[in-house]
């Protein structure tokens, strides 16, 4: 890794002003560092200054009341996974957090870092490859090895978004608070992530001088069942080949509303309106759940090596719906 200077942050204004003086990559923020350190060691990022956010006060806790959750961006993934209220009422979020990496990584990795982590694409992570994501001309995954790449929303960069927590938050209708030089703003987590057609270089709307400070999650309605299914090659640590965050508001086995958000298959968490439409107002049967899966992938455009992800995604959606209705 290259040399850098290291600043312990004391307040948000200081952080945004440090960031404000540079574009991407000169000054970077670090919290858990579980993603960033790998990038530094592999020369994917070579910042001159690292700003340590862990020293910011009051951003590492979870507040839960009848209206919902407020989770500070510095809250560890482990704290989210093990929080009793989250486990009971926001099951999809607890399950998604628990599926991240390993206990050691969950103990230091943070919510903010999980949402803002960079792609695991093996071309992006190779310092010698000047790919489209890094400002080059070509997304090498298109003609190259693409077993782990996107089947939806890829054009022109076929990375998949690696976060497990993001699909869960979107399925729960969460909002995200961002701090910048002009103060704070709040938006839906769904709006936070962007596709490469909008911006091939980044995965979200953050400007170089902005950071995530908090996530708010509304309390799900009664009779809500939520769950996170993650297909991966090995038990841990592993990223999703495909994952489904599902939030289902049920009357018996009839689905009143469904939120279905996919991970591991698109450059951003992928909300499947098609699957939601196929489930909403329906009595969940084998046939209905299968239809939802099929509808979700009807526009999928697999590459040479990842056609299996189409069937995998389809089957996971159908399994999630059946589990919500009948398990």
């Amino acid at each position: 890794m290259e040399k850098f200077s290291y600043v312990n942050a004391t307040n948000l204004e200081q952080v945004t002003s440090l960031l404000n003086d540079s574009g991407w990559g000169e000054v970077m923020v670090i919290a858990g560092g579980t993603d960033l350190l790998g990038e530094l060691k592999e020369y994917v990022e070579t910042p001159k200054t690292l700003v340590n956010l862990k020293t910011l006060p009051g951003m590492d806790s979870i507040a839960a009341d009848a209206t919902g959750l407020k989770i500070g961006a510095l809250t560890t993934v482990a704290d989210i996974a093990m929080h009793p209220t989250i486990q009971r009422h926001y099951t999809v979020l607890a399950q998604a957090a628990a599926s991240v990496a390993t206990p050691q990584i969950r103990n230091v990795g943070t919510l903010g870092g999980n949402l803002c982590q960079r792609p695991r694409c093996w071309y992006y992570r190779d310092e010698t490859v000047d790919c489209l994501k890094k400002g080059g001309e070509i997304c090498y995954a298109v003609e190259g090895l693409n077993k782990y790449h996107a089947i939806l929303g890829g054009d022109p960069v076929y990375i998949v978004h690696p976060s497990d927590i993001a699909p869960a938050l979107i399925a729960l209708g969460a909002t995200i608070k961002i701090a910048g030089p002009e103060g704070e703003k709040t938006m839906a987590v769904e709006e936070f992530f962007t596709l490469p057609a909008t911006n091939p270089f980044r995965e979200n709307v953050l400007e170089p001088n902005e950071i995530v400070v908090e996530v708010q999650v509304p309390q799900p309605k009664p009779n809500t069942k939520s769950l996170y299914l993650k297909a991966r090659e090995k038990g841990a640590p592993d990223f999703a080949l495909a994952s489904v965050a599902g939030v289902f508001e049920m009357s018996g086995s009839t689905c009143n509303t469904a939120s279905i958000v996919l991970g591991g298959v698109a450059p951003a968490p992928w909300r499947s309106k098609e699957a939601e439409a196929a489930l909403t107002g329906k009595m969940i049967s084998e046939a209905v759940s299968k239809q939802a899966g099929a509808d979700a992938v009807k526009d999928a455009q697999p590459l040479n090596d990842n056609e299996y992800k189409v069937v995998l995604t389809q089957n996971l959606i159908s399994r999630a719906a059946m589990m919500a209705a009948h398990a």
């Binding site: 695991r120 093996w122 090895l145 090659e233 090995k234």
Partner: peptide
């Protein structure tokens, strides 16, 4: 080992080269 056409191993880390753990 997953090689690309140029002969680069694309998965030269224990994250991407998957050895079993107790969960498996």
């Amino acid at each position: 080992y997953i090689y690309n056409a140029e002969g680069t191993m694309t998965n030269a880390s224990f994250l991407d080269y998957r050895i079993p753990t107790c969960l498996d």
